Simulated assay, not measured.
Amino acid sequence: METSASLRHALLTQREPTLTRIYQRTFPLVRRYVQQHGGSASDAKDVFQDALIVFYEKAAAESFVLSSSVSTYLLGIVRNLWRRELNRRSQLPLTDLSEEHAQHMAEEAEPAADGRDSLPVLDYVAQLGERCQNLLLAFYYFQQPLEQIAGRLNYGSIRSATVQKFKCLERLRKSVRTAVAHAVAH
């Protein structure tokens, strides 16, 4: 078990390798926990990223005291974040698409009239997972302020929401670039 001081020093001087080591050691536990409690592997990735941000912010503070293993501490954060996420999901209204809206969506999904396949960005947003999808749509489509998004999606701080938004956007850009490169190659 690492001491609080040695962990803080490793995070401040060698952040990337330290976080990578923590990720490799802890993520399988997180994925198993989230999947056993109604989530997907994508949900596990999202909640683990949030937990890592919370952990990093706490561990970098002088007053941080680690009284368990890093994995145990992180799993505790994940449990709290996942419980909040499940509560949030249970409060979302379940609505069906109207027939007119469903027809409109189907028409938009059809290939372009000139024979080229289109690359609908919303398909790629949907592949990111529900948490990223909610965050990006709230910020870019509904133009909600980050303060409101952070509160609604249970982020620890506005900074956490900003970091997560950036990560989600980067994942979206990467998947679109890959699809475009694949479409151009074929």
Rank of each mutant, 00 (worst) to 15 (best):
G129V: 08
S40F: 06
G76L: 05
L153R: 04
A41S: 15
W82N: 09
N87S: 12
L119M: 14
P145T: 08
P120S: 09
A106R: 14
P120T: 04
A112T: 09
W82T: 06
G76R: 12
D123G: 01
Y140V: 08
F142R: 12
Y124K: 06
V34A: 00
Q36S: 15
L146C: 00
D96T: 13
Y141M: 12
L92I: 13
E107G: 04
Y140I: 07
S98A: 08
E107P: 02
L97N: 10
D123A: 02
L137E: 07
Y56K: 12
A113Q: 12
R83K: 15
L136V: 10
K58F: 09
V47E: 01
V125Y: 03
E147C: 01
E110I: 03
D114W: 04
P145S: 07
V54F: 05
V47F: 09
C132H: 12
P120W: 09
L135Y: 09
E147Y: 02
D114K: 06
A41L: 10
E62I: 10
D117L: 14
R83A: 14
L52I: 09
G151M: 04
Q127V: 00
E57I: 06
A113W: 02
H104L: 11
P120M: 07
A44H: 08
K58L: 14
A138F: 13
L52E: 09
E130Y: 12
V70Y: 01
F48C: 04
F142H: 13
A126L: 05
P93V: 08
P93F: 04
L97F: 13
F48V: 06
R116D: 09
Q91A: 14
D50Y: 05
N154K: 03
L75A: 04
S90H: 15
R88E: 06
A59G: 08
D50S: 13
L81M: 07
V65F: 05
G151T: 05
F48R: 01
R89L: 12
L75F: 05
K58V: 07
L66E: 04
E108R: 15
Q148K: 12
L86H: 03
L74H: 02
A126M: 02
S71K: 03
